[in-house]
Amino acid sequence: MRDTERYPVKGRNSLYQVYDTVPFWKVVKNFVAIQAARYTPFLPMKNWLYRTFLRMKVGEGTAFALMVMPDIMYPERITVGKNCVIGYNTTILAHEYLIKEYRLGDVIIGDEVMIGANSTILPGVTIGDGAIVSAGTLVHKSVPEGSFVGGNPMQVIYTKEERSKREAENI
């Protein structure tokens, strides 16, 4: 399941009230930093932008592909471990604005995680060390360490033990 905090709103939908929940100038700063990072081909520069301007926690050796879209409202709630690959056009959300409430949740991506292109990670999710997320996956719940997951909605394809056994057979 996802670990999110829920905040009810009255009146108009929560997105319409966005600047009651997050400062306008924070969003502008984050937008500029994210757009610069999305288009730069220099991986160390991306990590520097994320760490410096967005206050994301990004481990050494982690590579964000082109067009990755971290959360624009609450990027400081995203942690990515060491030596990860975040695939092209992946979206990592730490918020969701709904009609009668908005939700916030930390996203924690462990060490040596591979996330395939065009995946979406929802708020409040933890992806365990060594996990693999197939391209195009909607990560709507936490991913066990070392497992291989995929699909929309996400399903476990192989557990850590099943993956280890398959890899041993293919040596």
Rank of each mutant, 00 (worst) to 15 (best):
100 K>S: 14
71 D>G: 10
68 V>L: 05
102 Y>H: 10
98 L>D: 06
75 P>E: 11
102 Y>T: 00
67 M>R: 14
126 T>C: 02
91 T>F: 07
88 Y>P: 02
88 Y>H: 15
89 N>C: 14
85 V>L: 09
115 I>Y: 04
99 I>S: 00
103 R>S: 06
80 V>L: 08
92 I>D: 10
107 V>Y: 13
110 G>P: 11
87 G>I: 14
109 I>L: 10
86 I>W: 00
89 N>R: 15
123 P>K: 05
111 D>E: 10
122 L>A: 03
64 F>E: 11
121 I>N: 07
57 K>W: 07
96 E>K: 03
97 Y>S: 08
75 P>T: 14
73 M>L: 07
79 T>F: 12
94 A>G: 09
84 C>S: 08
122 L>P: 00
100 K>I: 01
82 K>H: 10
87 G>E: 14
111 D>Q: 00
111 D>S: 01
117 A>N: 02
60 E>D: 14
73 M>W: 11
84 C>Q: 05
79 T>S: 15
74 Y>W: 02
59 G>R: 05
63 A>D: 15
105 G>Y: 10
56 M>I: 08
126 T>P: 03
116 G>M: 02
99 I>N: 10
106 D>V: 09
71 D>F: 09
89 N>V: 03
108 I>T: 13
62 T>I: 04
56 M>Y: 01
71 D>W: 08
70 P>Y: 12
60 E>I: 02
112 E>A: 00
64 F>R: 08
58 V>Y: 04
83 N>C: 03
102 Y>W: 12
98 L>S: 00
120 T>H: 09
74 Y>H: 11
106 D>L: 06
60 E>F: 03
69 M>F: 10
99 I>E: 10
87 G>H: 12
73 M>R: 11
83 N>I: 00
69 M>C: 05
89 N>M: 15
66 L>K: 12
114 M>V: 02
99 I>M: 01
67 M>L: 15
88 Y>L: 12
113 V>Q: 01
121 I>L: 12
95 H>Y: 06
127 I>R: 00
110 G>V: 07
74 Y>M: 11
111 D>V: 03
66 L>R: 12
78 I>G: 08
125 V>T: 05
116 G>K: 01
120 T>M: 15
80 V>I: 15
127 I>M: 04
74 Y>V: 02
105 G>S: 01
58 V>E: 07
105 G>Q: 06
